[in-house]
């Protein structure tokens, strides 16, 4: 067993068997995770046909265009809301807030991150879909996603803004830069990779949410109408959850295809997020 770190290891029977056990655990866990990955890919890829991307869901089968478009639209609007609110929160926390307020805001963001998705979903269902009479709608769904994505974006932006070198800011201020200018022309460019990483992580979260959308966005076989209320929206996770329970093989195909697409989207956002992290670490060296 090659110890990657830590030089000469005195080898005893106990130590060696513990390490063996830990490697066994690693192999078991990695193996299981890989088998889930392989399951989705092997069932989903054969079901990924070109017409999935050009036609909408019809009856028991059809395409996924409506769900793909709906997923991206929901996430995009959710992100737009989150960018405004999340970056605002981070800027205020880092730049303007007194120390006690910083602590409180960071705590509230942590609390928000821990709220179970179904609680938010049920809240929005009762408050917006029923009481406010919005019906299943784009805006209700996007709000649900925004509530979930907010903590991830605020945390990332908070860290990113806090890490902007002080000397840079002080220099700018000394040269007579206005606070807004400091924020937009120094903080933002510096913090951008960190913020983008946060936004990508949030995108990944938003793409995969189901529970808060079932009773807010509803579901639609058609392309999203762009009307903010009174018009339900389709999304990929719904297809996975509902179509696997239909008594038709072609419906199951659709569920597997949707699951594979979700996996690919998550993979891509992950990859992008990593590349930003790498860009950031390279630059700071």
């Amino acid at each position: 067993m090659a110890l990657a770190r830590g030089g000469v290891a005195p080898k005893t029977w106990a130590s060696r068997s513990w390490w063996t056990l830990s490697v066994a655990c690693l192999i078991a866990v990695i193996g299981l995770l890989f088998s889930i990955f392989a399951f989705v890919i092997s069932r989903g890829f054969p079901a990924l046909k070109p017409q999935l991307f050009t036609t909408v869901t019809q009856g028991t089968a059809g395409g996924l265009l409506n769900a793909i478009a709906g997923t991206f639209l929901l996430v995009a609007i959710g992100l737009a809301l989150v960018i405004v609110v999340g970056l605002g929160t981070a800027i205020w926390t880092v730049e303007f807030a007194p120390p006690w307020a910083k602590r409180v805001i960071r705590f509230m963001i942590d609390v928000l991150a821990g709220v179970p998705s179904i609680v938010v979903g049920y809240f929005l269902y009762v408050a917006l879909v029923e009481e406010a009479g919005w019906g299943f709608s784009l805006l209700a769904g996007a709000l649900a996603l925004a509530i979930f994505m907010l903590p991830y974006v605020v945390r990332a932006a908070d860290v990113a803004f806090s890490n902007v070198p002080r000397a840079l800011r002080e220099g700018a201020v000394a040269l007579g830069a206005r606070p807004a200018m400091v924020i937009f022309s120094i903080d933002f460019p510096w913090a951008l990779p960190g913020i983008l990483t946060g936004l990508l992580v949030a995108t990944g979260i938003g793409l995969g949410e189901t529970a808060p959308l079932i009773y807010t966005a509803g579901w639609s076989n058609y392309l999203p109408s762009l009307a903010p209320t009174h018009s339900p929206v389709g999304y990929l996770t719904y297809v996975v959850w509902t179509y696997i329970s239909q008594p038709f093989p072609e419906s199951h195909q659709l569920a597997y295809a949707a699951a594979a697409l979700l996996m690919i989207f998550v993979f891509v956002t992950n990859l992008l997020a990593r590349s930003f992290v790498e860009y950031k670490t390279n630059r700071s060296r």
Binding site: T60, I77, A80, F136, G218, S220, Y222, S225, L226, A227, P228, S231, P232, S245, Q246, P247, F248
Partner: peptide, 24 residues
Amino acid sequence: GLLGGGKALAGTSLLETGSTLVYP
């Protein structure tokens, strides 16, 4: 967002929801 909100729907849309037995 505003444009999307104000845009009229092409044609009429109906929503059917409910029983999973009727769904297929």
